[in-house]
Each structure stands twice: as C-alpha cells, then as structure tokens.
C-alpha cells in the first residue's frame, strides 16, 4: 500500500496500461512508468500530441533535425508497428524491449533481419546492403571506391549467402550472426537493465510507489 490517495491512472491517448505492458515485456511496471516520462519528453518536442512523429524521433536520436536518414527512418518504421506514421507509447515500449539485455537472442536476430530487409521482401538483398553501405559512407563522410564497395559486398555475400542466390534469407542470417556475434551489439542497450536510475526526476513525478511491481 502506498502513502498517497490513488488518483487513478493517467489518461493520455495511446498510454497503454503499464501493468499490461510490463506483462508483455522485460520491463517492470516502474520501468514502464519511467519510460513514459521519457516518452512524454520526446513526444512533445515538436508537436505536443502525445505521439512521436519521425521528426521528433530524429531530433531525439541526433539532437538536431537532420535531413532524411536511411537508418533512422528504418528504425522509426520498425518502431511504428501499426504503420500510422507515428509511434504510440505501446509501440515505443515494445520496440525498446527488443533492446533489453534480458530479451532472448532470437528476438534481437529477428529485429535485425527486419532492419536490414529494407524493402520488406523477406530477404536481405545485395542492392539493399549496397544502399546501406553507401548511406553509412555518406553519414561518416568516408569515401570508398565503387570497386572497394563491391569487394566488401562480394566478401559479405560469400560468407552469408550460403545458397548463392544473391540474397540472404532468414536462416542464412541466423547462421551468419551466430558466426559474427558482434553484429548484434547494436541490438542491446545495457541502460535498459536498470532504467529507473536513469530518470531521477521520475521518482517525484510518478505514481509508481502505489503500484505493485
């Protein structure tokens, strides 16, 4: 029992019940509430409508409103599960959950496969990898000759595309990441293990002490 009179749950559009979200993810109820504090801050940075649009997402990621960015767009699309052009709170928590250290490796592998399957064809195709490589080079202001890019692609497909059909299917991807575990590093955010300490202000703002976790 908490010390305060319960005032009921926050009524915010798209604010799914933290208890339900906690039951579906590796987060505790308190952590879901902490994520809501973060979500509120991101979702009100440009338009205060309680939803994260692409501009707000990019702003949160890069601290500036960069131009179109292939990777940020792709991550946004994977967070925007319902394809509404905005990320609601439930989408946000469930997508971040994939990056939780305690989430099974298979979920991370699935997410990374979708991330790189730019055209959602069920395969990671050579031209998609080339497109991402070129985007990375532009982003990091690195220059590589086209033949060097083709060499990198050749080597990658030699290792990953076991059946030599010019595209990487899901089972080839599974085997490839097992052999190259460093590729999954981006799929884990150690931060997420203890999220409530990341948001000291949250302790004063939330109703968490009233909720059984």
């Amino acid at each position: 029992m908490g010390c305060f009179q319960s005032t009921g749950r926050r009524q915010v559009p798209g604010h799914e019940d933290p208890i339900v979200l906690a039951s579906q993810t590796a987060f505790t109820v308190s952590e879901v509430e902490a994520l809501f504090e973060l979500y509120k801050s991101i979702s009100s940075s440009v338009i205060d409508d309680g939803l994260i649009n692409k501009e707000e997402f990019q702003l949160a990621l890069f601290k500036n409103r960069k131009k179109e960015n292939l990777f940020a767009n792709r991550i946004f699309d994977l967070f925007d599960v319902k394809r509404k052009g905005v990320i609601d709170f439930g989408d946000f928590v469930r997508a971040l959950n994939v990056f939780h250290p305690n989430v099974p490796q298979e979920d991370k592998i699935d997410f990374s496969f979708k991330l790189y399957d730019l055209d959602n064809t069920g395969y990671i195709e050579r031209q998609e990898v080339k497109q991402m490589l070129i985007a990375l080079l532009c982003e990091s202001e690195m220059k590589l000759a086209d033949e060097t890019i083709e060499m990198i692609l050749d080597k990658t497909f030699l290792d990953a595309d076991v059946d030599k059909d010019g595209k990487i299917d899901k089972s080839e991807w599974d085997n490839f990441v097992v052999k190259n575990p460093s590729l999954l590093k981006i799929m884990t955010l150690p931060y997420l293990r203890d999220i409530t300490t990341t948001f000291p202000s949250f302790v004063f703002n939330s109703e968490v002490d009233e909720i059984a976790t």
Partner: peptide, 25 residues
Amino acid sequence: RPVSMNAFELISRSPSFNLENLFEQ
C-alpha cells in the same frame, strides 16, 4: 580496415543505431 570487414559490421557503426541517445533528453 573497411575492406577486411563485412558490410554489416560497417553498417552497424552508423550513429543512427545508437539508441542510447534517446535516453539523453
């Protein structure tokens, strides 16, 4: 050196994948 790396190792270095930035609001 980039040539000795596979494409995905390079791609995964994109700062866009650094979702920790989301937590620095």
